[in-house]
């Protein structure tokens, strides 16, 4: 029964979800919203599982004096500081001027932005490796990237200003993005859509069940 009940729930929910796409009549037209709401509610309760797990692992690291125990301490302090301040400030904790919003604006946001900003450097290092002309495909990639990058900045058109307009770099870049790039992306999307249908069908029929915990 431990396996059968989840399989039954999965099958019924999956079939209902497929049906609701084709049946506009009530109650099917509202089912998508109902299930999304239920998922949000379950997810909201489950957040405590995550939080407790994080605290447990962090406390354990400190107790065992593991090599990175200091980071675990930072996690615990941050967790309790933000939680206590959030609860202490009540319903308006997100209003401007509160300690919570100060922490959000001046601690959390800059940290988050810093992580995002690192991406710029990683793009450069990854591009450097990807664009090395080792073989025909990599050379094609390098040339496409060269044309697109130059075509996206004004200097591209200045360099090719002597050519007819349709051969200027901005137009070449636009052609690469509109045709070969879109065609490639759509091919991937078609494969993904087929994979999604196939995976969903396997899950609904109970053929794929390892996500329920283990084998068959």
């Amino acid at each position: 029964m431990r396996r059968e009940i989840p399989l039954l729930i999965t099958a019924i929910t999956g079939i209902v979800f497929v049906l609701q796409y084709f049946i506009p009549h009530a109650p099917f037209n509202k089912m998508n919203t109902w299930f999304s709401d239920w998922f949000s509610i379950v997810g909201a309760f489950a957040i405590w599982l995550g939080a407790l797990n994080l605290l447990k692992i962090s406390f354990q690291k400190i107790m065992d004096k593991k090599s990175d125990w200091f980071f675990a301490l930072v996690i615990i302090i941050s967790f309790f500081v933000i939680t206590i301040i959030g609860f202490a400030e009540g319903q308006g904790f997100r209003e401007p001027g509160t300690t919570f919003s100060w922490l959000y604006d001046y601690v959390y946001s800059p940290l988050s932005a810093t992580m995002f900003a690192i991406l710029a450097f990683f793009v450069a290092s990854a591009s450097y490796r990807a664009f090395r002309a080792r073989n025909f495909e990599a050379t094609l990639l390098l040339l496409s990237a060269f044309f697109v990058m130059l075509g996206r900045v004004p200097v591209g058109d200045i360099i090719t200003g002597f050519l007819p307009q349709q051969y200027q770099l901005s137009q070449v870049a636009s052609w690469i993005m509109t045709f070969p790039q879109t065609a490639g992306q759509r091919a991937i999307m078609i494969g993904i859509a087929l994979g999604l249908v196939s995976t969903s069908l396997r899950i609904i029929l109970g053929i794929e069940r390892s996500h329920l915990g283990g084998g068959d």
Binding site: I188, M189, G191, I192, L194, G195, L196, S198, T199
Partner: peptide, 8 residues
């Protein structure tokens, strides 16, 4: 694994 290969 590109797209469908993930599901496969």
């Amino acid at each position: 694994l590109i797209g469908e290969e993930l599901f496969a």
